[in-house]
Computed example of a mutant assay.
Amino acid sequence: MKKDINIFEFPFNLGLTKKEHETEPGVKKLPDWFRKFGFHKRINPKNIFRLEAPEYRMDFDEETGVKNTYQVIEYAKKQSELILKHFNTDTFHLMLGGDCSILIGSALALKQLGNFGLFYLDGHTDYILPKLSPSGGIAGMDLAIASGLGHQKLTNINDLKPYFQEEHIFCVGNAETDDDQYVGEILNSKIHYLDLENLRRNGFRKTTEDFLRMVDEKNLDGFFIHFDVDVLKDEIMPVVDSRMEDGIDYENLKEILKPLIVDKRCFGLEITILDPDYDKEGIYTQPFIENLIQIINEPTKRI
């Protein structure tokens, strides 16, 4: 990659509901875990910025129907401020989560910079209303919130609703397709939606090309990539909050991400949900890091 890289560490976990055996979700350990295996050193960022998260809790908010509403909003505001303070047009912004709710802070920042597209690569749609969520965790609703679906408290922070226009979003890779109610909302939206089966049918590289064509046609100011690692096959990435058996492999991932990352309009990439508590020896983390570094540091020709 020719651009400088800034790493932003967002070790936030309040978008997830902790499991019975957990003190708190372990996804907040991801940035330090990556550092342990040499990721930061090999990426060689120009700067590293970090925003610590508040203490974990599970406060249910009756008005919004989700947990930790206030904490998510406040963190998103601070996250947005940090990104805007240090953003540079000649820099690739690499965000290490954390759970998927960090998308809200990234989206807030991007809305203030212009009109951006979103490539949402995830094993779930994360596009539901609170009434469909048994856990009340915002990490399962972040795409909905980022595109304006949900309570005003979350969807209209600083009067910026919507953070992304639905027609500027590609949601790709959902493997949870057996629940009509779950996918109903996104099917009724203007989001370009390809579940895992249709992603394979359309082609990994072609799906990326279709997205970049949309960015061109809409004359967008740029785009951002959300990458939840649970979109990967369970056999290579079981260390996630909500496991799905089927998914893509690393070759598929490279076909999708390389043309996006090399594009000069790419603002950056956020990585979410990998939980070090489920990978005590780094058996799954280390090959993930190797493949991610190849994607970022050894891209194909610039588009």
Rank of each mutant, 00 (worst) to 15 (best):
M1G: 06
K2Y: 12
K3P: 00
K3W: 11
E9C: 13
F10A: 11
N13T: 14
L14V: 12
K18W: 03
E22I: 11
G26K: 01
V27K: 01
K29H: 09
L30V: 03
D32T: 13
D32V: 08
D32F: 13
F37H: 12
F39A: 09
F39K: 07
P45E: 10
K46G: 03
K46C: 07
K46N: 10
I48G: 01
R50Q: 07
E52C: 14
Y56P: 00
Y56M: 03
Y56C: 00
E63T: 08
E63R: 08
K67E: 10
K67R: 15
Q71S: 07
A76F: 05
Q79W: 05
E81M: 06
L82I: 14
I83D: 00
L84P: 00
T91K: 04
L96R: 02
G97L: 07
I104L: 11
G105M: 11
G105C: 08
L108N: 03
A109Q: 01
K111A: 04
Q112M: 13
G123S: 04
D126A: 04
I128W: 01
S133M: 09
P134G: 05
G137T: 15
I138M: 12
I138E: 02
A139V: 14
A144I: 08
S147R: 04
L149V: 15
K153S: 06
N156M: 04
Y163A: 02
F164P: 00
Q165H: 10
I169F: 06
C171K: 00
D179Q: 13
D179L: 05
G184P: 10
L196E: 06
E197L: 14
E197I: 15
R200M: 07
R200C: 05
R205P: 05
K206H: 06
K206F: 10
K206G: 04
T207S: 10
T208C: 13
L212Q: 10
V215S: 04
N219Y: 02
L220F: 04
L220N: 08
F223S: 03
F224W: 14
I225V: 15
F227V: 15
D234E: 15
V239P: 05
V240E: 00
M244R: 08
Y250Q: 07
E251H: 05
N252F: 10
N252D: 11
N252T: 07
K254W: 09
E255V: 06
L257A: 09
L257V: 13
K258Y: 12
K258C: 12
P259F: 02
P259S: 02
L260Q: 03
R265G: 03
L269I: 14
E270N: 06
T272W: 01
I273L: 03
I273Y: 00
D277W: 00
D279Q: 01
E281R: 08
P287M: 13
P287C: 12
E290T: 14
N297M: 09
P299G: 11
